[in-house]
């Protein structure tokens, strides 16, 4: 059974159609790269998966449940890192990590110390003095220390430096090794190429390609130059032509 199964998901904000019949399926235990340009609908899809947004049409299954109806039960089994992490100004990073861990109901002191060390975070600083990257680290540590089946990560590394990007990729692979499913939205192709098993490409609220990394690799080799970028550029152009 897939960890996430979406069929024909549609979401409107007033007149804007943010999602227009999205279909995707995330196999259990895989790292799924969810790629698309800004405004494509990545965050909207993830927020719907969290039951924060109410869908207008379509079917959504998450860990075998309905994200809108069973949100409390499902949230116990997943961890989410938003793309714009905002924290409480007068709390320290350490306090936030402890608080979120206790609220979620699963976290261990050893793992906490280990991830704070790896991400090189000073947990005694107040959140208002953290940069965007540091706030992201707090959210990432909170997600990685939790004992959950599914990680939903929305462009989680936009504020991190290259060194931390490496740590992040390592952590994601370890999570897969521990049997977790990772849903990683991103617009950094090198990141996706480095860690993902499955790929879905979204543009203007529609999926334009879904498949395994293996499949894409063979397609990449037919490109000039043979890079993921070239392949996606191709897809975007074709999709735009079809739209026109």
């Amino acid at each position: 059974m897939p960890a996430i199964e979406i069929r024909g998901l549609t979401k409107h904000f007033g007149k804007t159609i943010a999602l227009d019949g999205v279909d995707l399926s995330v196999p259990e235990g895989s790292i799924y790269g969810f790629i698309g340009p800004n405004g494509a609908g990545k965050s909207t899809t993830i927020r719907t998966l969290l039951g924060l947004l109410k869908k207008n049409a379509g079917e959504v299954r998450l860990l075998g449940g309905d994200p809108w109806r069973d949100n409390v039960e499902l949230h116990r089994r997943l961890a989410y890192v938003p793309s714009e992490v905002q924290l409480w100004d007068n709390m320290t990073g350490g306090e936030v990590i402890d608080f979120l861990g206790r609220l979620r109901g699963s976290y261990s002191k050893e793992r906490r110390a280990q991830f704070i060390e790896r991400f090189d975070l000073d947990p005694t600083k107040k959140c208002k003095t953290y940069s965007k990257g540091n706030r992201q680290k707090v959210a990432l540590i909170s997600a990685f220390v939790s004992d959950v089946e599914l990680l939903l990560l929305d462009e989680p590394t936009t504020g991190l430096d290259p060194l931390m990007e490496g740590v992040f990729q390592q952590c994601v692979k370890e999570a897969r090794g521990a049997g977790k499913t990772v849903f990683l939205s991103s617009h950094i192709l090198s990141q996706v190429e480095a860690v993902c098993d499955e790929i879905g490409v979204i543009r203007a609220g529609k999926m334009i390609k879904e498949g395994s990394m293996e499949e894409l690799k063979t397609l990449i080799h037919q490109q000039k130059p043979p890079t993921l970028e070239a392949l996606f550029l191709n897809y975007y152009i074709k999709d735009a032509e079809r739209g026109a």
Binding site: W88, N90, M91, T92, G94, E95, D98, F99, R102, L103, P123, T124, K125, K126, T129
Partner: peptide, 23 residues
């Protein structure tokens, strides 16, 4: 000098009521 905050949350800081008090 800027004071250092606490590295760990107090044991009682564990639910939404405690969070609402903080805010």
């Amino acid at each position: 000098p800027q004071r250092k905050g606490r590295a760990f949350a107090k044991p009682g800081f564990r639910n939404l009521s405690a969070l609402a008090w903080r805010t």
